[in-house]
């Protein structure tokens, strides 16, 4: 059922969640992202596609300022979430990241119990008043992560002991536990087998109801299956951005055409 692109999906929400203007990113002397302008809608799955090294992950990491942790990285330009400039001096990246969750390429559960992995975010942000509250948050997050049924009997077991696909869903559950508004996913399925990938994709489609999801992927089929909007990056430029159905059936730019038909990549 996941093989056919879901091209008919309509985008019902049209409000802009994230808007980027003239974003440039430099790694030392390397100009990694050039003049990126993009408006990402809320309650939408937006896919970033493009060949390796085109800057899609780098741009994703700008949205929650994860690039701040890399010494040589420098970001120029405006990125606004709900109209607020996230690179403003008054914005604390720590608070921003609580609002903009992130799931990484490789599942990275902490070497703690499943329960503590989920409870980590709520604890540091003080989201739970007491233990019972926390229990509720953990259960809700694990249910949203579509992993509750598999782990409900062993919440004290280490998160690192789960299978790869379960670990990734645990990481997604961990990210949604802090109730973010935006969820960034950096190739969340590249380390997973097809069955786990299908589960995670189904999950992403459900998450769209509550969050704006931005997903970086190498798989064009995946982008077609899960996203409503698609952005194509090439050599640090945002080449084309539009509805997924339009990008995959009727691309305007020749480079997009070449990439999705497999001539460059």
């Amino acid at each position: 059922m996941y093989d056919a692109p879901i091209l008919g999906d309509t985008v019902d929400q049209k409000t802009t969640k994230i808007s980027a203007r003239d974003v440039q990113v430099y790694y030392g002397d390397t100009h990694a992202i050039k003049d990126v302008n993009v408006d990402i809608d809320s309650k939408t799955v937006t896919a970033f596609i493009g060949p390796s090294g085109c800057g899609k992950s780098t741009f994703l990491r700008c949205i929650n300022r994860m690039n701040d942790t890399i010494d040589v990285c420098r970001v120029v330009g405006d990125i606004k979430i709900d109209g607020e400039d996230i690179y403003d001096k008054r914005v604390d990246p720590v608070q921003l990241r609580a609002k903009v969750g992130m799931v990484f390429q490789k599942p990275n559960p902490f070497p703690k119990s499943i329960y503590d992995n989920i409870a980590y975010g709520p604890r540091i942000h003080g989201l739970a008043k007491n233990k019972a509250d926390l229990d509720v948050i953990v259960e809700k997050s694990l249910r949203r992560g579509a992993i509750w049924d598999e782990v409900k009997d062993r919440l004290d077991a280490p998160g690192t002991g789960l299978s790869g696909g379960q670990q990734q869903r645990l990481c997604i559950a961990r990210a949604v536990a802090t109730e973010p508004e935006v969820l960034l996913m950096d190739e969340p399925c590249s380390a997973l087998d097809p069955i786990a990938t299908a589960q995670v994709e189904e999950l992403i489609d459900e998450l769209r109801n509550q969050f704006s999801v931005v997903i970086v992927t190498h798989s064009m089929q995946q982008a077609a299956r899960v996203s409503q909007k698609t952005a194509f990056f090439h050599l640090g430029n945002l080449v084309e951005y539009g509805d997924t159905s339009q990008i995959f059936t009727n691309p305007l730019d020749e480079r997009t055409q070449n990439y999705i038909t497999g001539r460059i990549g």
Binding site: V94, A98, M102, K106, N108, F110, P111, I124, T178
Partner: peptide, 25 residues
Amino acid sequence: QAMRDGSYGLGATQSETVKQVILPA
């Protein structure tokens, strides 16, 4: 590094990351 990224990605500060993720690990 994935441990640190995971923690920062959840909005943890550096000291929270050190105390609750890195030192236990």
